Simulated assay, not measured.
Amino acid sequence: MTSWLTEAVPRGRVAAFRTLIYLFVAADLVVFTPWVRTRASVPGELYQPLLVGRILPLPTPTPALVAVIFWALLLLALLAATGRAPRLLGWSVCALYLEWMIIAMSYGKVDHDRFGLLVALAVLPTAGRARHGDTTRTEAGGWALRVTQIAVICTYFLAAWAKLRFGGLDWLTGSVLARAIIRRGTDFADLIAQVPYLLIVAQFGIVAFELFSPVVFLLPARWRGAMVGFFYSFHAVTIATITISFAPHLAAMTSFLPLERVRPLVWARRLAGHRGPAEEDAGPHPDDVDTVPAQPSVAVPPSAAGRTPVVDQAPVVGRPVGP
């Protein structure tokens, strides 16, 4: 079990995942959850903090507090995306984003798509330093990615458990998707809704998919990648029908992917027609092995075995040849 939890991965994968997660945090502040800043204008008596907010305890949001958290988190997330000071910046981003989410979710609605992202922010500082393109393997980084993967799958499995716990079998045979389509459906969803019993079949399929999602850990690497691709396709259909993106969950789910192969800076240099000094010193990247020409081998005749090789030397210019 320990070897599975700490399965070593390339440091380049950890570096790419770290950059992606911290850039997503910055994007989340300005694209996905800018509405959190409006919580500062809500009367304080409406603030009902989550359990963690009551245990710590955390202050009631004020305009000054929300503004400080927003700008500090935005700046630190961008700095953390560079990979510098991974522990100091990582723990700072984790603490500030947790407080940002507590403020967001303490007014009556809690989104479960943030769980994997919060776990990723909590474990990334423990992965240590990692450089893009580094092929050396790290168990600490492997543990960080594995724990994030477990959180992603728990999001699915526990969502199915909640459906059956609170909705029972009626969730499977009820009008859950029909109500979602009426509230926020697209034209594509309207076409699907016209097919008899298709929404009921889809509800059975959703619960089955979520309950069996842990199977991904039992599959060989090739099939695991295919199943993760199915996860992403499921969310693509969700966006296309009822416009729910689960963007934080999708960002955390990249922990399953071989992100070390995604090197946009290297690709940009190739498009520009040159290679950077660091890349030239390092030689060909492992992904480029197939493009390196092999050196032809020279066959030595059996009759030449054991003889001293004779080297033909060309005369040196400006130097007399002969006695």
Score class of each variant (00 low, 15 high):
I206H: 05
D28T: 04
E280D: 10
D111G: 10
E260S: 15
P57V: 08
P277F: 10
V292G: 03
P284V: 06
I102L: 15
L191Q: 14
L50P: 02
T173Y: 10
I55Q: 14
H274Y: 15
L51W: 14
A81P: 01
G108K: 06
A305F: 10
I192N: 06
L164E: 14
T173C: 04
G318N: 07
P309D: 07
G44E: 14
T243H: 09
R87T: 13
R261N: 12
H274D: 15
V289K: 08
L211E: 08
T38G: 11
T148D: 00
L172F: 06
L219R: 13
G276T: 09
H112P: 05
G83S: 04
E99I: 08
P301N: 05
R37W: 04
T241M: 06
L5H: 06
K163A: 02
E260N: 04
A8Q: 11
V68H: 12
T155G: 07
V152C: 08
S3C: 02
D290M: 03
K163F: 06
A130W: 09
R183C: 00
T254D: 02
G133N: 07
V176A: 15
H249R: 00
F230R: 09
A67V: 01
A305T: 08
C94I: 00
R87P: 04
F217L: 05
P214S: 08
A226V: 13
R184M: 05
L88A: 14
V216I: 15
V195S: 01
V321I: 12
A151N: 03
L124P: 01
W223K: 04
E210H: 07
V14L: 10
I69R: 12
S297P: 02
F246L: 00
V311Q: 00
G83R: 07
A208I: 00
G185K: 02
L51Y: 09
G276Y: 00
G283L: 09
V93Y: 00
T2W: 14
R146H: 10
A247C: 03
I200D: 08
V201R: 11
W161Q: 15
A305L: 09
A72K: 04
I103A: 01
I69D: 11
A122Y: 06
V119A: 05
L74C: 13
V30I: 14
H235S: 02
V52I: 10
T241R: 02
T82A: 07
A272T: 02
P220F: 01
Q48F: 04
Q194N: 11
I181R: 08
S213R: 03
E210W: 01
V110S: 00
E280I: 12
T38M: 13
P125Q: 08
H112Q: 02
A159S: 15
P59D: 07
W100R: 06
R263G: 06
R129W: 08
G318P: 08
A252L: 12
L56T: 13
L23T: 05
F246C: 02
V316S: 05
A240T: 01
G283S: 09
